[in-house]
Design a protein around this nucleic acid. Structure first.
Lengths: 250, 250
DNA sequence: CTAAAAAAATGATGTATGTCATCTTTCTAT
DNA sequence: ATAGAAAGATGACATACATCATTTTTTTAG
């Protein structure tokens, strides 16, 4: 695990080029042409800044279920998700994962720990094949210091997430598993659209905060009530309004 | 409710002086002499900056159970807690409070919503008599823009809290009520020390995320196990190590 | 294409915790 | 000091959900 981690984050341009030859899905993406950038924190970067970003970053291909970083280790840079989904999670005392967030294209991952100066409080792994760029700590902190638009964007993002997590905590504390599942499906629908939700039952259970068996039974209920359709692993939301009603007002 | 809110935040120096005459507990505190400031985000302010802060702030006395701000409203400034405790909470769908955080002297409250540009996602009320200073939005944002030490402190604080909330969510999802109560008592012990924990059973239940009756029963268990002592409302931790063991490894 | 492994599904069972109802103690205001 | 209100405490009961055990289906790798 940690050996991969090192390999991944230390990979320099040579390695990256090598990777590129070996892995067909891996491609170098310039920030200027990155489609995920349009609604990211870098959306306001001018050409000049994008060039700088291109020079300081590396661009890597990740297979399914590969860790980006692990709880307890120290951050040395941030990850910018070009393609694919990533889960951010902590482990409880018995090792069970609690998924805090599912990140999609355009999101920057791992800057919280870097700004706090503490080791990571969460881990992150790919949920599918991903293209992820990496920006070293120095470069990123420098960008924040000099670029007030980026900096304000980050402060705004941190604050927004803090608010979201207050709601998350309240949901965990007060809603039934059924309600939380409905809530989770609505969130995931946004993350995955226009595609269908594509997670293992276990990951979904770990996001909702329940046992896998309970989750499976509730999915069946939802299917029988006509709110979702199950295509083996993929879940299709067919009645979002009803899901909202089940989830409650929030 | 909201009428109080308005009165409070719009109060100018005249009103404040009036308050001061009416309320014996209310006193104006200059930032330079504020004992709560030493480990606050303003700890690095120089004399000149403190003077500025003094000029832009107002200083108000709050009775027990008075709201500072309410979920859904828009922030117009931040609150700096000079004395007393404040609860920060959301309400679930049935109106039940979920306490997210208990703030003590020196903490700045309400800057998350201000930075996010969104309405408050949480409410805040005093848990006891409080002295609280108020800094208007303009002044505060201006300070952040010009003072990089303060700004970095705030980014650090936001990031740190985000990490803490990930742990909080995991605890909510995976720990038993008994474990969560042990965890909560340890946190509250830090907040209240050197005094004893002083909360209603209902507030404590809303922090732990359980029913008041369940909480009362568990407190009794802890008392019988010799880990706490109950002095009517006040709770004394007598065996913190054992509490840590009960709470689990985190 | 097939075997093995992983994921999904189903059933049976136990229990932690929420809910409701009642009673007692403590606090608050006059 | 006293009455009324709020907070605290206790019991009886119901149930949502976790756990464990087993079977079926899907995915993966050789």
């Amino acid at each position: 695990m940690s050996s991969f981690y090192k390999t991944s984050i230390n990979c320099n341009f040579m390695l990256e080029t090598l990777d590129c030859m070996l892995e067909k899905s891996h491609k170098y993406v310039s920030c200027a042409s990155c489609s995920a950038r349009k609604d990211s924190l870098f959306s306001n970067h001018c050409d000049h800044e994008l060039d700088e970003l291109d020079e300081s970053k590396s661009c890597n291909y990740y297979k399914k279920n590969q860790p980006l970083f692990i709880e307890g280790s120290f951050p040395r840079g941030v990850f910018c998700l070009n393609g694919g989904k990533v889960k951010v999670f902590t482990r409880g005392d018995e090792g069970k994962e609690q998924i805090i967030h599912i990140a999609k294209e355009g999101e920057i991952i791992g800057f919280r720990a870097m700004l706090s100066g503490e080791p990571y409080k969460v881990s992150a792994s790919t949920l599918e094949e991903c293209n992820i760029c990496y920006i070293g700590k120095e470069d990123f902190l420098n960008m924040i210091e000099t670029n007030s638009v980026l900096r304000n964007g980050i402060m705004k993002e941190l604050s927004k997430e803090l608010g979201e997590r207050a709601v998350f905590i309240t949901n965990m504390a007060q809603k039934s598993v059924r309600e939380r599942l409905a809530f989770a499906l609505l969130i995931l629908n946004d993350v995955y659209k226009p595609e269908q939700i594509n997670l293992t039952r276990e990951d979904l259970a770990n996001f909702v905060g329940t046992a896998t068996e309970t989750l499976i039974r509730l999915l069946k209920d939802f299917k029988e009530e006509g709110v979702i359709e199950i295509h083996t692993r993929k879940l299709e939301i067919v009645d979002a309004n009803k899901l909202e009603r089940i989830a409650g007002t929030r």
